[in-house]
Amino acid sequence: MTIQTMLALLAQSFTLTLAIFCLTLLGSLPLGLLVYFGKKSRFAPLRWLINMYISIMRGTPLMLQLMVVYYGPNLLLGITLPGNWRFTAVLVAFIINYAAYFAEIYRGGIESIPAGQYEAAAVLGYGSGKTFFRIILPQMVKRVVPPVTNEVITLVKDTSLASVIGIMEMFTRAKQIAVAPHSPGMLAFASAAVFYYVFNYLVAFLMSRLEKALDYYR
């Protein structure tokens, strides 16, 4: 196998890595906010449920969660799943896992906002919805950019875990190339590492731009 062929194969599978990455963020960033609301709900059973969910998501390996989501419905419930279930299972597992982390990050950001902000809003007559969306949420976003950046960078690397259920993202492809006849061997892994690194470099750069863009106030 030539190096060109190898790189072409890796680049092609990288589009799937990218799709997992983007769709996970698209789903988990807003879902994290809903989970936070659930954790703060006045309805106690919902709070317990959310706390248990966060605890399990953070307390067990993502790789195991991927396997449960993928094999679980069939093994536990006997449901026959459609052929494209593999990709859906990856997204479901990643989104619910990352949403749990984001919910906790949002909670930290929201709880760090001084009580005076709520009081000023209350005295000016803002209702609780307007207080949250106009006063608290924008300030929370600024505060959570650094920890969210951490999670986003971790996600880039975590996409490789999807290989455990055999989806053809870049890491699965790299493993496949490495054991193929006449393969470039370790070079496949080294090349995949470069892909991850460069992509993360870009992610870190964009997040630091976002941080700077929010720097117009303290």
């Binding site: 005076g116 005295v123 803002y126 303290r218």
Partner: peptide, 27 residues
Amino acid sequence: CGLVFQQFNLFPHYSVLKNLTDAPVQV
């Protein structure tokens, strides 16, 4: 009734003008 706080409690993410106009418009 209006209240002025010891610690000001302005909305830091809004400009001075927006601090003054947001509540009249929204509320």
